[in-house]
Amino acid sequence: MSTTTIDGRTIHVDQEGFLTEPAEWDEDMARSLSALLGIELDERHWKILRFLRADHASTGETPTLRRVSTSLQVPMKELFQLFPTKPAKKMAYVAGLPKPRGCV
């Protein structure tokens, strides 16, 4: 298991940079991670991130893009606007969760 330092905090990550210890995540960490991706978080982002964290806590899996869209009634197009290019990976990364299954 690797570690990296973000904003002076040492966190555990996998080889792709996803946090491996969800307990190391907090909202300040999310702001730092999103800044690395060039994303400025607003309330729409927080709604998604909070869902991701809660769903992962109850299922043990990172929700897929389709699950997020269906559960929150957020159109897929909006998810791509909020987390451009690879929304499933970017949402999981900022939420401090493992990369969703099926993501390349």
Rank of each mutant, 00 (worst) to 15 (best):
M29Y: 06
S71H: 08
A30K: 00
F18G: 05
P84W: 08
L33C: 10
E43F: 12
Q15T: 12
F18D: 01
E21T: 06
T64C: 11
T70H: 14
S69R: 04
S2N: 14
G96V: 01
M76Q: 15
G102C: 08
K86E: 12
H12K: 10
L79D: 02
A30T: 01
S69G: 10
E27I: 05
P87I: 06
P75V: 10
H45A: 04
P87L: 07
T64W: 01
A88F: 04
S34R: 09
T20H: 01
V68Q: 02
Y93C: 10
R66D: 14
R9T: 06
H56E: 05
H45E: 03
V68R: 02
T3E: 13
T20N: 01
E61W: 02
A35Y: 00
E16M: 11
R44Y: 08
R9Y: 11
L33K: 04
G38F: 07
F51C: 02
G17Q: 05
I39W: 00
P63T: 08
F18Y: 14
E27G: 07
H12G: 04
P63D: 04
A54C: 07
H56P: 00
E16D: 15
I48W: 03
V74W: 11
E43M: 11
K89F: 07
L65G: 04
D55W: 00
V94F: 07
L65D: 03
S32Q: 12
F18L: 08
H12M: 11
L52N: 03
Q73T: 14
T70A: 14
T59R: 01
T5F: 09
L37T: 03
Q15A: 13
L33F: 09
A35D: 12
E21F: 08
P75N: 15
I6S: 04
Q81N: 12
L37Y: 03
D7W: 13
W46G: 05
H12D: 09
K99Q: 10
T70P: 12
P100W: 02
S34D: 05
L97V: 02
E16N: 14
R66Q: 15
M76V: 13
R9W: 11
S32H: 10
P98G: 03
H12Y: 04
L72R: 07
P98V: 05
D55R: 01
D14V: 01
F18I: 09
L49N: 00
T62G: 01
F51K: 04
H45R: 09
L49Q: 00
E16Q: 14
P63L: 07
L33I: 05
G96Y: 00
T20C: 03
D14G: 09
E16L: 15
D42V: 12
L72S: 05
E43D: 14
L72F: 13
R9D: 08
S2F: 11
V104S: 15
M1E: 13
